[in-house]
Design a binder for these strands. Structure first.
Length: 288
DNA sequence: CTGCAGGGGTAAA
DNA sequence: TTTACCCCTGCA
C-alpha cells in the first residue's frame, strides 16, 4: 500500500477535538502537532487542520477521497441539522455552540459492537487500552512512517480466541460477553448484513439487544456511531441522564429519573435528530 | 502505604 | 427493582 493525501478547504462543521473527543470513538490519538492519527477499516490516517484546510494523509485501502467522505460523513449537511436543532431551545443552542464541529463517524459495525460492549461500566482510558491490546494481538499489522499500527480484528481473526485469552487482556467480566457475541455473529445467529436495508430502527435495535453484553445504551451507541448511522436513537448514560435532568426534568434525586421520561422528552424535542442532539448535549456537559 | 468508592451498563437474582 | 461485576484511578 502507498501513502495517499487528500485536502479539503472550508469544510463546514469539522473540528478534530469535537469529532474525536465526543465519546464516539476509541482509536484516535492526538499527536504532538495537534493532529490526530487513527486506525479504522484497515486504514491508518492522520488528520491535520491548518487554517481553513484539512489535510488527510495515510495508508488507505482504495481511494482516500471516497474513504474520508464516507468515514467522516462529509456528504451530510450538518449546518442544516444544527439550524434545525437550534430552533428547539436555548439549551440546544448552547450545546451546538460548544460542539459545533462534531461529525458522527461511520465506523465499522463489528468493531463498534465489540468496542461498546467493552465500554460497559468502564472508563475511556481503560477502554482504549483494551481495544489496543485486542488489535495488537489479533488484528493485522500496518506500518506507516516507521510506526507500527494494528487494525481492529475481524470476526474471522477472533474465531479461535478463548474466554481466558480475553481475560488476560484485561477485559474483566466482559470476556465472556465478547466471546459469546463474536460467536453469535460468526454463526449468523443475527443477520447483521440485513440491518443496512431495514428501515425500522426499532427492529434492528431488538436484534442488537439479543447479543451478549448489549443492553439499551450499548445498542443505541452502536446504531448511532456505526455505519448503520441511525439518528433516531438516544443513548442514555450517566452524563446524558444528568444533563437531561438538569435542563428539563429537574428531579432533586438524579438517580430516580425515569429513562422512559428522558426518551419521551428527547423525541418530543429533537424528533428523529435526537441522536445528534444527544452528542451536542453530552459533549457540552462533559467538557464544561 | 492501604482502603475504598466509582466509572460513558448489563445480566442475573 | 436491586446487586455483583474486572480493573484502574483518584483520593482519604
Amino acid at each position: 500500500m502507498i501513502e495517499q493525501e487528500y485536502r479539503i478547504k472550508n469544510q463546514e462543521s469539522f473540528e478534530l477535538k469535537h469529532i474525536f473527543d465526543c465519546g464516539q470513538c476509541f482509536r484516535w490519538n492526538e499527536e504532538d502537532d495537534q493532529s490526530y492519527t487513527g486506525v479504522f477499516k484497515g486504514n491508518v490516517l492522520n488528520v491535520k487542520k491548518e487554517k481553513d484546510t484539512i489535510i488527510f494523509k495515510g495508508i488507505i485501502n482504495g481511494n482516500i477521497k471516497e474513504v474520508v467522505e464516507d468515514y467522516f460523513d462529509l456528504k451530510r449537511d450538518y449546518t442544516k441539522i444544527k439550524k434545525t436543532l437550534s430552533k428547539v431551545d436555548n439549551n440546544m443552542k448552547k450545546g451546538i455552540k460548544y460542539g459545533e464541529g462534531i461529525r458522527i463517524l461511520n465506523q465499522e459495525l463489528i468493531e463498534t459492537i465489540l468496542s461498546f460492549i467493552i465500554s460497559a461500566n468502564n472508563n475511556i482510558p481503560r477502554i482504549k487500552k483494551i481495544i489496543e491490546r485486542i488489535s495488537e494481538n489479533y488484528g493485522t499489522k500496518i506500518v506507516w512512517n516507521k510506526k507500527i499500527y494494528y487494525s481492529f480484528p475481524t470476526l474471522e481473526q477472533l474465531k479461535d480466541v478463548s474466554v481466558e485469552e480475553y481475560r488476560n487482556l484485561g477485559l474483566g467480566f466482559r470476556d465472556k460477553r465478547i466471546y459469546d457475541t463474536v460467536h453469535m455473529l460468526l454463526d449468523n445467529q443475527v443477520d447483521y448484513k440485513k440491518w443496512y436495508n431495514e428501515e425500522d430502527t426499532f427492529k434492528v435495535r431488538e436484534e442488537l439487544l439479543s447479543l451478549a453484553g448489549v443492553g439499551p445504551k450499548v445498542a443505541d451507541c452502536i446504531l448511532l456511531f456505526s455505519d448503520l448511522k441511525r439518528f433516531d436513537v438516544f443513548p442514555i448514560d450517566v452524563w446524558v441522564r444528568r444533563v437531561m435532568n438538569e435542563l428539563y426534568i429537574k428531579n432533586p434525586d438524579e438517580t430516580k429519573v425515569n429513562k422512559k421520561e428522558i426518551e419521551r422528552i428527547a423525541y418530543q424535542k429533537f424528533g428523529n435528530l435526537e441522536g445528534i442532539a444527544q452528542q451536542y448535549l453530552f459533549y457540552w456537559k462533559r467538557e464544561a
